[in-house]
Deep mutational scan, measured.
Amino acid sequence: MAAGGDHGSPDSYRSPLASRYASPEMCFVFSDRYKFRTWRQLWLWLAEAEQTLGLPITDEQIQEMKSNLENIDFKMAAEEEKRLRHDVMAHVHTFGHCCPKAAGIIHLGATSCYVGDNTDLIILRNALDLLLPKLARVISRLADFAKERASLPTLGFTHFQPAQLTTVGKRCCLWIQDLCMDLQNLKRVRDDLRFRGVKGTTGTQASFLQLFEGDDHKVEQLDKMVTEKAGFKRAFIITGQTYTRKVDIEVLSVLASLGASVHKICTDIRLLANLKEMEEPFEKQQIGSSAMPYKRNPMRSERCCSLARHLMTLVMDPLQTASVQWFERTLDDSANRRICLAEAFLTADTILNTLQNISEGLVVYPKVIERRIRQELPFMATENIIMAMVKAGGSRQDCHEKIRVLSQQAASVVKQEGGDNDLIERIQVDAYFSPIHSQLDHLLDPSSFTGRASQQVQRFLEEEVYPLLKPYESVMKVKAELCL
């Protein structure tokens, strides 16, 4: 049975990233139509530049190519590739079939990587351009969430054990800070992308030097003109047959890092959902379990974690691919890159769409948070109580021993009897502590235990987050809708 299948058929496997999760716009960027249309555009740009620099290419040939950029006979191309065992030459023939007058000058002087690699770089750039505003929107939604809850005390956790208090907004800023680093890295790697350009079979530009009869300047002009037509500021000066596969490492490393950030955020949300302090959106008709109707599973956060793990592992592909590119190139890269580049971007696209949807509907339960604080705060307040007693004339050592005994009794009630923490009640009825009984409410005010959390939130948002989001103001209103 021949390899390949009808990918629109229910009898043929289709990647869930495309069929179930990723956005239509990201799927289109990695589609065959987008790819092969870009090949034709690159052939047109090459012909236009070659004509401008004096090669015998007519206006009629150029116009014929322009008129057929979208006229792609995919069936013919597939048949040609089956016959020739070469995808680029299959599309040269297919393009030439609908451009008979231009057929002889299509791909003039070029090698397969002229269309293959340059198209990949265009796709990487455009895919990054799709991700950047999506990530900015996630940051914006979380920034709104953090600002609104900047002063809401909550129990902090280290080692997932109760620690000092923080605020809900401050905790959210930990998430935002990681995503801001990801946004900066995505922008950097996007701006650092260079075009492969017009380089020939081993990167020496020998074929173009021959076409222009040894004119170095025209060869350099050709490279520059096509690079500018493709919208790049610069091209690699040095290439082998391909652009260095280190570029793929750079791009997928940034995406993998984004995956790590999203995994951490969504894990926190899942843990908070278990504590009943916070939940992701839950639709009115949504079913959490087929057997347990009360369940409210954090399905979206779980999906993000599941896909983020996949995204983090994909960076190993370009690392290994770059390491086995012998001399000017081997074909070890080809099949692998067809999979890992598309999957990385479709996965990143999915987790950003999902995280935006989550961040637009996060639900906080202040009463649950308050109750958990009441359970733990008495123990945390013991040092403040000791200091207040010393100020009232008591002995630190005597007070410490009193607190120690009462704390152990209260802990026994919590752990052995399943009761509430009654340390404060014990202190309130103990005559030894009568000098500070009137101060206990103040000493137990949760806001006095959150330090500068709310001020940190305000400063972080104003100095770091809002300036970073400013270039994306025009796209901030787009909502994230999930079908599944």
Results as ranks from 00 to 15, higher is better:
residue 402 K to S: 05
residue 293 P to N: 01
residue 379 F to Q: 03
residue 369 I to C: 12
residue 383 E to Q: 00
residue 348 A to Y: 03
residue 13 Y to S: 09
residue 251 V to T: 14
residue 80 E to V: 09
residue 86 H to F: 00
residue 391 K to D: 05
residue 446 P to V: 04
residue 142 L to R: 02
residue 143 A to R: 05
residue 42 L to I: 11
residue 298 P to F: 03
residue 103 A to T: 13
residue 6 D to H: 00
residue 370 E to N: 15
residue 352 L to A: 11
residue 181 M to K: 09
residue 74 F to W: 11
residue 258 L to V: 11
residue 412 S to R: 14
residue 207 S to G: 14
residue 111 T to W: 00
residue 37 R to V: 09
residue 458 Q to T: 14
residue 65 M to K: 05
residue 250 E to Y: 12
residue 49 A to H: 02
residue 158 T to A: 01
residue 192 D to R: 09
residue 89 M to F: 10
residue 61 Q to V: 09
residue 250 E to I: 07
residue 80 E to N: 12
residue 458 Q to R: 12
residue 204 T to L: 04
residue 454 S to K: 15
residue 351 I to V: 12
residue 390 V to G: 06
residue 483 C to W: 08
residue 246 K to C: 03
residue 364 V to D: 05
residue 16 P to M: 13
residue 470 K to M: 14
residue 483 C to A: 14
residue 23 S to E: 10
residue 105 I to N: 13
residue 334 S to E: 02
residue 103 A to W: 09
residue 336 N to G: 14
residue 285 Q to W: 14
residue 287 I to K: 02
residue 267 T to D: 04
residue 353 N to L: 13
residue 281 P to V: 10
residue 454 S to W: 10
residue 289 S to P: 00
residue 198 V to P: 08
residue 155 L to E: 01
residue 318 P to F: 04
residue 179 L to S: 07
residue 137 R to E: 08
residue 147 K to F: 10
residue 407 S to M: 00
residue 113 C to A: 11
residue 250 E to K: 09
residue 389 M to D: 10
residue 297 N to P: 03
residue 117 D to N: 00
residue 347 T to L: 13
residue 471 P to V: 15
residue 322 A to P: 03
residue 481 E to H: 15
residue 325 Q to M: 13
residue 214 G to Q: 12
residue 338 R to C: 02
residue 285 Q to R: 14
residue 360 E to V: 00
residue 428 Q to S: 15
residue 242 T to Y: 02
residue 206 A to Y: 01
residue 161 Q to R: 04
residue 120 D to P: 03
residue 44 L to Q: 13
residue 116 G to Y: 01
residue 297 N to A: 00
residue 477 K to S: 11
residue 7 H to N: 15
residue 265 I to V: 12
residue 272 L to R: 01
residue 115 V to Y: 01
residue 350 T to C: 12
residue 101 K to F: 08
residue 343 E to S: 10
residue 128 L to S: 11
residue 437 H to A: 12
residue 107 H to R: 00
residue 27 C to S: 10
residue 348 A to C: 13
residue 81 E to H: 04
residue 314 L to V: 09
residue 323 S to F: 02
residue 270 R to Y: 03
residue 185 N to G: 13
residue 193 L to Q: 09
residue 66 K to W: 13
residue 135 L to G: 09
residue 315 V to Q: 09
residue 183 L to V: 14
residue 179 L to V: 12
residue 238 I to G: 07
residue 65 M to L: 11
residue 280 E to M: 00
residue 160 F to Q: 00
residue 399 C to P: 04
residue 403 I to L: 05
residue 284 K to I: 09
residue 258 L to N: 08
residue 252 L to D: 08
residue 4 G to S: 15
residue 330 T to W: 01
residue 186 L to K: 04
residue 269 I to E: 00
residue 239 T to C: 11
residue 469 L to E: 03
residue 103 A to K: 14
residue 421 N to L: 07
residue 112 S to G: 06
residue 316 M to N: 11
residue 6 D to I: 08
residue 21 Y to C: 01
residue 390 V to T: 08
residue 7 H to M: 15
residue 54 G to E: 13
residue 363 V to E: 05
residue 353 N to F: 05
residue 383 E to K: 01
residue 248 D to Q: 01
residue 431 A to K: 14
residue 62 I to T: 09
residue 467 P to R: 09
residue 11 D to Y: 10
residue 389 M to T: 02
residue 146 A to N: 05
residue 368 V to Y: 06
residue 85 R to C: 06
residue 419 G to Y: 08
residue 285 Q to H: 11
residue 3 A to C: 15
residue 235 A to C: 15
residue 379 F to E: 02
residue 223 D to A: 07
residue 327 F to L: 10
residue 87 D to M: 00
residue 390 V to M: 11
residue 464 E to P: 05
residue 301 S to L: 15
residue 335 A to Y: 04
residue 437 H to L: 06
residue 60 E to P: 10
residue 384 N to W: 05
residue 161 Q to K: 01
residue 175 W to P: 00
residue 149 R to H: 09
residue 365 Y to Q: 10
residue 56 P to H: 13
